[in-house]
């Protein structure tokens, strides 16, 4: 499995280049223009990351996060869920940069290749900032009554949360 993973990126890069040449794309020019888009979007998330990572760091230093984790640990221990990922599960549908800040904290505290680190990574990637998406798409056409959209999306998010724990447990062990 690990071997397949390290082949992934080089192979994708080769395929994209071959695809680009076959379609007569000026590959370097295209790369430069895409790179600029990437710069803009990275810079544009910087302010919210500065605000949110600082607040998460304060939350950890003050002991508030520890108090919260130990308060919910009887519940999470029973289900076999690492307590560290609960704040991430709560914030994930609400704020993208907020969950990046929390995830960054989890990865540096408990280790990236630990059980909780892997669960947090899967949870982050397999779900989306639900409330933001709903606001952007329905807001664009002026729809106020979204009917069953939010319940359906949130049920999918909650399932994704429990599935992350389950699948990581099955594939990597605790």
């Amino acid at each position: 499995m690990n071997n397949i993973a390290s082949y992934t990126l080089p192979i994708i890069i080769m395929l994209i280049l071959i695809f680009g040449y076959s379609k007569k794309v000026p590959v370097f020019d295209a790369f430069i223009s895409g790179c600029k888009d990437g710069m803009n979007s990275t810079i544009s998330i910087a302010p919210s990351l500065i605000g949110l990572i600082t607040s998460v760091s304060m939350l950890k230093a003050s002991g508030a996060l520890d108090i919260f984790s130990s308060a919910i640990s009887p519940f999470t221990n029973m289900l076999g869920i690492p307590a560290e990922v609960i704040p991430l599960a709560i914030l994930r549908p609400i704020s993208g940069s907020g969950s990046i800040a929390l995830l960054n904290g989890i990865l540096s505290d408990v280790g990236v290749d630990s059980f909780a680190g892997r669960v947090a990574s899967v949870m982050m990637s397999a779900t989306e900032t639900t409330f933001y998406t709903v606001t952007v798409y329905f807001g664009a056409v002026g729809i106020k009554n979204t009917r069953h959209t939010i319940p359906s999306a949130l049920i999918a998010d909650i399932s994704g949360f429990f599935l992350s724990v389950l699948v990581v447990m099955l594939l990597f062990g605790v």
Partner: peptide
């Protein structure tokens, strides 16, 4: 964090632009 992500984020969006234009 932003600085350490910067290079690879730009590299990847650059590459995906090739795929997109193709």
């Amino acid at each position: 964090l932003v600085i350490s992500l910067f290079g690879m984020m730009c590299f990847w969006t650059g590459f995906m632009k090739i795929a997109e234009l193709g």
